[in-house]
Design a protein around this nucleic acid. Structure first.
Length: 465
RNA sequence: UGCCCGGUAGCUCAGUGGCAGAGCAGGUGACUGUUAAUCACUUGGUCGCUGGUUCGAUCCCAGCCCGGGCAGCCA
């Protein structure tokens, strides 16, 4: 007989004479003449109540059905006599597939997130993590949907790369050389010409440069894949392995880029609100009481756009004592970004046109302002509670300006020959951005730590599972 | 990497320079269309590790290990 998922059973429009369910026991409540078993199979937050009468031949099985055990149930789907659920299943057969004894770590009581991280192989069976990973799955689908509906093509950027996307972060080396006795050059350095790819190679820190290649051919593209940063970051919003979405659009300037970013974020939130309503309600109740109001607010209001120069003026006019005082030319610190999005504007804010000196070489140089200060067409989208969720820019499409910027950054042209070729042959204004998928998920769910929105987090010193 | 906080039962925590505690989970029994059910009884400990101070250290001190928060790096 075909299995019915718990979610499908909940959505039933009428009773069913025969139903077959498989899943895991969340909790059991015994009476003298019968037991209630709450069954969950991950298809929905809410479990299904199974009523097992003591007169049933299989009833002895129920005593073995502790929290965590896997079970199979045949029965009838009927309207519940109790309050709290519409449907329940009266069992006709009840079988324990795999027992879980008293050492099963997931109890009915609440657990701390720190403890659940240590049992990452079991935490998806909890309410919170079940909800997080259902939303994660839906959000990934919504990413593709957004771009596919708008004529964007999905590009698989390489995971192993020889380029370092300049300044994006420390990289993990990919090598098959024997670390105990690597081949050496006459000068005594490790000879990577002997390595697998005959050159030094690394895990990608960004697919942007490759996405630019494809944007300059297919016009509208996006990448969506894993990204690696070997930074020794120990914060709630950094991971060594995370997923990033990087759209790249030909014939597009910074304004178009900011429009796309805003539309994208709104689409993702709208989609999750529509398709993960029960899970979001759970987050609103147990994780972040203001979540639902904030998500609505984000959908309704246009995001504020504020130039870097204006931002510095706002910060200096705030009357705040900053731990890091700001003047034009400085990087904005986390405290500044938080103030702008959480206190001054109280909504998502796109800060654009940053000083040239503090940004990457590939960003397009703007005309100097009245005071002769140079900026680049870069933008960061800041959201309350998380800070930077998107970083992007219009790319420098003018060959001479790009070469000058590379020289300023002390970059050799040779390894970037193909990147420069894009400006030699049919160059076009183009722009793009990177959205941290996990950060978006944090924003959508209210979950405060990036380690809790990725199945198996990789952070410094941790790669269990 | 820097600064700060923590580590006591399976989990969440209390506690004391002199016999190691509670709630939940597990076990036994009772009871009830129950909803993190309830009630009674009950099993369960290298008090993170190493060293020091002390008659005596889970408690005080030092070092180390592990976890977390914040900052930097960024998405």
């Amino acid at each position: 007989m075909q299995r019915t998922l718990v979610k499908t059973a909940h959505d039933a429009t009428g009773p069913m004479d025969a139903i077959f369910l498989q899943g895991w026991v969340r909790t059991r409540r015994d009476a003298k003449a019968f037991s209630f078993v709450e069954l969950n199979d991950g298809s929905s937050l809410k479990g299904l109540q199974i009523v097992v009468d003591a007169s049933l031949a299989d009833y002895p099985q129920v005593a073995r059905a502790h929290t965590g055990a896997s079970v199979e149930v045949h029965g009838q789907l009927v309207e519940s006599k109790g309050s709290g659920q519409k449907w329940e299943v009266v069992a006709t057969q009840f079988k324990v597939v795999g027992e879980a004894d008293g050492t099963y770590p997931l109890q009915k009581k609440g657990h701390t997130l720190e403890f659940l991280r240590e049992i990452a192989h079991l935490r998806p069976r909890s309410n919170l993590f079940g909800a997080v990973f259902r939303v994660r799955s839906r959000l990934a689908y919504a990413v593709h949907q957004f771009f596919q509906e708008r004529g964007f093509h999905y590009v698989h950027a390489p995971i192993i790369t020889a380029s370092d996307a300049e300044g994006a972060g420390e990289m993990f080396r990919v090598s098959t050389l024997d670390p105990k006795s690597p081949p050496l050059t006459p000068e005594g350095a490790v000879d990577y010409a002997e390595d697998f790819f005959a050159r030094p190679t690394f895990l990608t820190v960004s697919g942007q440069l490759e996405a630019e290649i494809f944007a300059c051919a297919l016009s509208n593209v996006y990448t969506f894949g894993p990204t690696f940063r070997a930074e020794n970051s120990n914060t709630s919003r950094h991971a060594a392995e995370f997923w990033m979405i990087e759209p790249e659009v030909a014939f597009c300037d910074l304004n178009g880029d900011m429009d796309l970013a805003e539309e994208f974020v709104k689409h993702l939130i709208r989609d999750v609100k529509t398709h993960c309503a029960a899970d979001l309600e759970f987050f609103g109740k147990f994780v972040d009481k203001e979540l639902l109001a904030r998500l609505d607010f984000v959908l309704e209001k246009p995001f504020v756009r504020c130039s870097y120069t204006e931002a510095v003026e706002i910060l200096n006019a705030s009357g705040r004592q900053w731990e890091h005082p700001v003047q034009w030319g400085d990087n904005l610190q986390a405290e500044h970004e938080r103030y702008l999005t959480e206190e001054h504007f109280k909504c998502p804010v796109t800060v654009y046109n940053y000083p040239r000196a503090i940004k990457a070489f590939y960003m397009r140089v703007n005309a100097p302002d009245a005071q002769g200060r140079e900026t680049v067409a870069a933008m960061d989208l800041l959201v309350p509670g998380i800070g930077e969720i998107i970083g992007g820019s219009q790319r420098e499409e003018r060959l001479d300006v790009l070469r000058e910027s590379m020289a300023r950054h002390g970059l050799e042209e040779k390894p970037y020959w193909w990147y420069l070729d894009l400006r030699r042959y049919g160059t076009v204004p183009h722009a793009g951005f990177g959205l941290g998928f996990e950060r978006m998920l944090m924003f959508a769910t209210g979950v405060a730590n990036i380690r809790d929105v990725i199945p198996f987090a990789r952070t410094p010193g941790t790669a269990e599972f």
